[in-house]
Design a protein around this nucleic acid. Structure first.
Lengths: 198, 198, 198, 198
DNA sequence: TATGAATGAGTCTTCATTCAT
DNA sequence: CATGAATGAAGACTCATTCAT
């Protein structure tokens, strides 16, 4: 059972990360200053340092938290889907939905994260795992004749690329389609390539 | 005709942008400091301010220069291609090749540019024009029965997304395929969606 | 008679001073932080403020406590010694022995104390009293013909200076002589000056 | 020949060290803040960092400069003196005079320097060299029968201790004796120990 | 009484920008 | 035009002190 102390700590850390997400999404890592985060969290600047060792650590913790959540959600949904087409759809939807609910998350994850040397490698790794998971599913489907033989990993990465692009556009401009339409379009695009008879 | 004065100015600005590209690609906007750029350009720090009003302006000018070049090149190659499939290939190759030749360009354009609030909108606009150009070509091909009817703009954006993804992966990891193989894979993927009989 | 309350207070103050002595000796006043002292004392930081008004007050109280103890010990030993030569020896030994037993004491007293503006004057005063006590003994001995007439106060200060120097060197480097040899050397040095026939 | 650039640099560094000496002498290392030094030097805070990498470096450079000067002066004067008694006198006078002329020097050198972990060892070394030089002179005099056999190094350190004590007292209280009287007293004290017939 | 989380003033350090030469 | 020394505003981080529990 958690001690009261652990609960409070967890609560504060969460509050700080929530504040940091807003600030970093808006201003980026360099321009998002500790005063902003403190103000957003309703805390004094010094308090941030009781829960995180440095600005970088806040950023890393935020990245870690959100990427792990996305990764876990994606893997779960892929596994739960009944067939490859649905697995692809779930992979895409996991991303689209999360970006919808948590716009700041994607602004940071996609836009900023890759730009900071101290997170680049980690970031790639977080992307890789769900992608490889999807690739494995493609391979299995291919070996069962469900789809034709394809370079599965490349297709999986392409899936991630397409989802990313769709999200970025939805974040910037007006949204004219529903999430499931958006996902449907991408799934069809990919499925055409998987099922085409050469 | 250009005065000597204009020639010198142009020469200096070019040198500064070249230096800035290297520095920003390596360190990002925030960590790439004016001293770095000056040193890289072989000029004194103060001299930078004779040719650009501020650090931000250097960055904007760099973005402008490189994005315009990419845009113009892409448009030209699309127009020169004989049919839609080749137009798509040229669109992708224009990006892949430029990223190959000028890795720094892409590291900045893609990774950093989007993260800086003062360039976000502009950046989207530079991407848009070639994409819409490609979309128009798709529409023409569709109306001539060359491909089936599709949401051309979405396909065009998808093309850009796929190209971007391929580039990013080539920048990070080891390169196992040639540029034309890479482009070929993407073209086939897209072509399947354009030509498939439902 | 002391109330239980007073006993507890006295106990806590002592514990805090003992902790502070270790911390300040190791890190100095500026770098020895309240957290260190609290941890060393096994108390919470806030508790320190129940017994002392501020960090400076802890330092002052520590200085007061240890210097008073040294002073009292020195005076007692001088008075107990049978003749001037032994009084000088006791003056020196009181210092050497205390530094031996309580290295931290001397590191603070000598090294740091003098550097803090808020203790400078006080510090000199604590040194002065035993020195003047010794000087008086010298004068008495001189007026009884035990030693020749000398500027007694200067000799007494010189005694303190020599003892201090010996201690500092023993704190830093390897110790090659016993305490009584060390004291003996200094006593002989001083005695030569007191007994010499011009 | 020095370039103009070197002259300016040297001039600035000197000005900063002079300012730092005053500030550190007054307030110590921890409380002497960079703003103080900048103000005292008539420079902006940032300028200090053009000439020194950090606050610590300023402190180290100051210590180095002043200690080297004292050391060199002491060695020169010892060598120039015709006999041991005068060498001892010069050793003491070198210190007394310097403290007289540059009171801040001694407040820092003696009081603060030893308290900072990052200078402790160096500081001992600066003291050691002149002391050992004097010790060697004592040995030579002893082997020529000029004085009796004594533990020369201990006597030399005692000389340094006595000089230090005298200086400290002159810095604090009113000065009732001339420098040469002060030195004369100490020389006689030491000489008695060196010449006494046991 | 004891606690330790919270505070925010204070410090070092960096770096875009200016300007006298 | 070119320079680079000087500036000072801004930001990360520390820690003595307070106060609600």
């Amino acid at each position: 059972m958690k001690t009261k102390q652990q609960v409070v700590t967890e609560f504060r850390r969460r509050a700080i990360l929530d504040a940091a997400r807003k600030v970093f999404a808006h201003k980026g890592f360099a321009d998002g200053i500790m005063d902003d985060i403190a103000a957003e969290a309703g805390l004094a600047k010094g308090t941030l340092y009781l829960y995180f060792g440095s600005k970088k650590e806040i950023y890393k913790a935020l990245l870690h938290h959100d990427m792990e959540a996305l990764k876990a959600d994606t893997l779960r949904r892929i596994d739960a889907a009944p067939n490859l087409k649905e697995k692809i759809r779930e992979f895409i939807l996991a991303r689209l939905e999360r970006a919808e609910v948590n716009r700041e998350f994607f602004r940071i994850m996609d836009t900023h994260a890759a730009g900071l040397s101290f997170t680049r490698t980690q970031y790639r790794d977080w992307l890789r795992e769900p992608v490889l998971h999807l690739a494995a599913a493609i391979d299995r489907a291919a070996s069962q004749g469900e789809v034709r033989r394809v370079p599965s990993e490349k297709i999986a990465w392409a899936t991630a690329d397409l989802a990313r692009g769709a999200i970025v556009r939805r974040l910037v401009g007006p949204t004219e389609t529903t999430l499931s339409e958006e996902a449907g379009f991408l799934v069809d695009l990919l499925w055409a390539a998987l099922s085409v008879k050469p």
